[in-house]
């Protein structure tokens, strides 16, 4: 591959753009970076699963911030876009297992809706690894912690996400 090819390859362009954004991060060098992760949890299964993880003292990284919603089907795609706009590095959505939805069908809508949204985000440059839907029941505290550890690890390996970030929102 010639130098010009290397310079104009999509990866290189992306890399440069990323660096340009990163240069704007005030006073934050690469080493200090901790990811920002939003976890939407449905009230009946996954939020209770997160509580159980707490009861069992199953730890997961502090960068995971949980937002309680009544049902995974309550999560509007706009919330996820907003999170990326505000600088989230990853968004995970947790709900009851298919068939177990407290509201009967909410998680089926989530499943279909998020499949579409995540492919669109992937197309826009927010890699599939940064978005995830996971079914966690109220009895799966260990699974909740394991999922969060795994997801945080994945986000760390992917590095900072800047594709949809609006730097005017940065503070």
């Amino acid at each position: 591959m010639s130098v010009t090819e290397k310079m104009t390859s999509p990866e290189a362009v992306l890399e440069r753009e990323n660096l340009a954004y990163l240069g704007d991060a005030k006073g934050k060098s690469e080493g200090e970076w901790t990811p920002k992760i939003v976890a939407f949890c449905c009230n009946w299964c996954s939020y209770a699963g997160a509580d159980l993880a707490g009861n069992n003292r199953a730890s997961y990284p502090a960068e995971i911030k949980i937002i309680r919603v009544p049902c995974s089907g309550r999560v509007n795609p706009l919330f996820i876009l907003r999170a990326f706009q505000k600088g989230a590095d990853g968004v995970i959505l947790c709900g009851c297992h298919p068939g177990d939805c407290h509201y009967m069908t909410g998680n089926y809508y989530t499943r279909r809706r998020m499949a579409l949204l995540f492919s669109m985000l992937d197309y826009l440059g927010v890699e599939k690894g940064r978005t995830r839907v996971e079914w966690v029941s109220a009895s799966e505290g260990a699974k909740f912690a394991a999922t969060m550890n795994e997801f945080a690890e994945k986000i760390r390996s992917l590095g900072r996400n800047v594709r949809l970030e609006d730097i005017r929102c940065r503070n």
Binding site: V69, G73, H102, Y103, T105, Y109
Partner: peptide, 9 residues
């Protein structure tokens, strides 16, 4: 029951 499915749809 307040599931919010309608608010997203």
């Amino acid at each position: 029951k307040g599931c919010g499915a309608c608010s997203v749809a």
